[in-house]
């Protein structure tokens, strides 16, 4: 049974999206500017993972969208 997302959970989800965004960009720099093939490979794989994580997090917000109350609850 899905519950409405709490304010705290919402903060964690949006902070996590920012974290994944930052990590994805950092990995892209390693792939673009790095010299070690092994590192570039690991970071290349990570880019897709971070992208997937961002979608997962966004999707969870969308799933909770309809459950969110429009009036403040006590």
């Amino acid at each position: 049974m899905m519950q409405p997302i709490t304010a705290k959970e919402l903060e964690y989800v949006v902070d996590s999206i920012s974290n994944e965004d930052l990590l994805m960009k950092q990995c892209a720099v390693v792939v673009a500017a790095g010299s070690s093939p092994a590192l570039k490979q690991v970071c290349g794989q990570m880019i897709h993972m971070h992208e997937q994580h961002m979608h997962t997090l966004l999707h969870s917000l969308q799933q909770h969208q309809q459950l969110a109350p429009t009036q403040p609850q006590n």
Binding site: T6, E9, Y12, V13, S16, N19, L22, Q26, V30, G34
Partner: peptide, 29 residues
């Protein structure tokens, strides 16, 4: 240094996800 920065951020995000999981009340979340 670049790789170390990514590693440090991954470590930080691991901690954040652990905290987020322990503080979630919705089972799906």
């Amino acid at each position: 240094d670049l790789a170390y920065t990514v590693l440090a951020d991954l470590k930080r995000v691991v901690r954040e996800y652990a905290t987020a999981a322990t503080e979630s009340s919705c089972p799906q979340t």
